[in-house]
């Protein structure tokens, strides 16, 4: 490969073409549909695909490509280009990352006989799995978020460890703590319960609307 005025590739190397085409045609079509759909819904909220079941399932498995690319662009110089196969691969890596951390956090919950994965469990799992550099910015982010939800005075400024104890108490007593009355994290725009019991995976696959657009969810839980 020679240096000079050449401005990047217009054609992929053969090996990369092979890599790209190893994906089945159906998957490629699904992926392309998702890319188009994500573009249409850029910066709004999760697209509720109506085309077909496969598209919905595909969209549920990955972060929207437009959001991922925007984050990548923050790091890359202005002249950098991103090939389509790199975009698809990093989407898969992000989903794998979420599943990897969630699996570890969930194991901790089960060992301690708790049913709800908390932010602290996620931070603990990241530290255990080697993402120590992320803990400090994420802790600051969480504190900032809690400050913005200022009406929950009972938890303001409390150390993370103490809050974990409260969850343990909740798990034992099955009684919601006093702050349960202020469970809207984003005010009226995006009501989310403090504890949300999701539908099982089978039902979820046919469940097409998204939590973000829901009305305020009922807090009643069945064990």
């Amino acid at each position: 490969m020679e240096t000079g005025g050449f401005h990047g590739y217009r054609k992929l190397p053969n090996t990369t073409s092979g890599l790209k085409l190893s994906v089945s045609d159906m998957n490629m079509n699904m992926r392309q549909q998702q890319v188009a759909s994500s573009d249409q819904n850029c910066s709004n909220h999760s697209a509720a695909g109506e085309e077909n079941e496969c598209t919905v399932r595909e969209q549920d498995r990955f972060m929207p490509i437009a959001n991922v690319i925007r984050i990548m662009r923050k790091i890359l110089p202005p002249h950098a280009k991103i090939s389509d196969d790199a975009k698809e691969t990093i989407q898969e890596c992000v989903s794998e990352y979420i599943s990897f951390i969630t699996g570890e956090a969930n194991e901790r919950c089960q060992r301690e006989q708790r049913k709800t994965i908390t932010a602290e469990d996620v931070l603990w799992a990241m530290s255990k799995l080697g993402f120590d550099d992320y803990i400090e910015p994420l802790t600051m982010y969480l504190h900032r978020y809690r400050e913005l939800e200022g009406d929950r005075t009972s938890m303001r400024g409390e150390p993370l460890g103490k809050r974990t104890v409260e969850y343990a108490t909740l798990a034992t007593a099955f009684v919601p703590p006093p702050f349960h009355h202020h469970n809207g994290y984003f005010g009226a725009a995006m009501p989310m319960g403090t504890y949300v019991r999701e539908t099982p995976p089978n039902a979820a696959s046919s469940h097409h609307h998204h939590g973000i657009s829901n009305a305020h969810e009922p807090n009643a839980r069945s064990i």
């Binding site: 049913k115 709800t116 994965i117 908390t118 932010a119 982010y141 969480l142 978020y145 949300v196 019991r197």
Partner: peptide, 11 residues
């Protein structure tokens, strides 16, 4: 995975 605290997806 049964229940997820509202703060976990934010993290």
């Amino acid at each position: 995975v049964k229940m997820i605290s509202g703060e976990a997806p934010i993290i």
